[in-house]
């Protein structure tokens, strides 16, 4: 995935069955962000892989004051990339479930 300056990782083991999964996100390179960034640390959250859009979660983070509006795309992309990877891994492991 493209280096967005943001890192998104699994915050729990993926059993491949749950639709909602815990993720954690943090800023590795604040210089890549357009908006002013206040060091918040690691943000842990859960996301429904099937029913939720990564972009919506990104917007909620902005609304909560973690990031600036101008980084919405970057944030959404970072989460989406990780979600795609999780889905791809699930598909590889158990194509029937996905």
């Amino acid at each position: 995935a493209e280096d967005t300056g943001l890192r998104v990782e699994l915050a729990e083991e993926d059993d491949g069955k749950k639709s909602s999964i815990a993720l954690r996100l943090w800023v590795e390179d604040p210089k890549k962000l357009k908006g002013k960034y206040k060091d918040n640390g690691v943000i842990e959250f859960s996301l429904d892989l099937i029913n939720e859009n990564p972009e919506d979660v990104a917007q909620e983070m902005i609304d909560s004051g973690f990031f600036h509006e101008s980084d919405a795309k970057l944030l959404g992309k970072s989460i989406r990339d990780r979600v795609s990877l999780i889905k791809w891994k699930r598909e590889k492991q158990c194509p029937v479930l996905v």
Binding site: W26, G41, V42, E44, F45, S64
Partner: peptide
């Protein structure tokens, strides 16, 4: 700081904790 903060937004819960040093040094 070492505190963990919980922020609620539109039914979602964000748990915020400090970034461990080791994470920042990861390649």
């Amino acid at each position: 700081g070492t505190t963990t903060q919980v922020v609620h937004s539109a039914g979602r819960r964000f748990i915020v904790s400090p970034v461990p040093e080791a994470r920042l040094k990861e390649p």
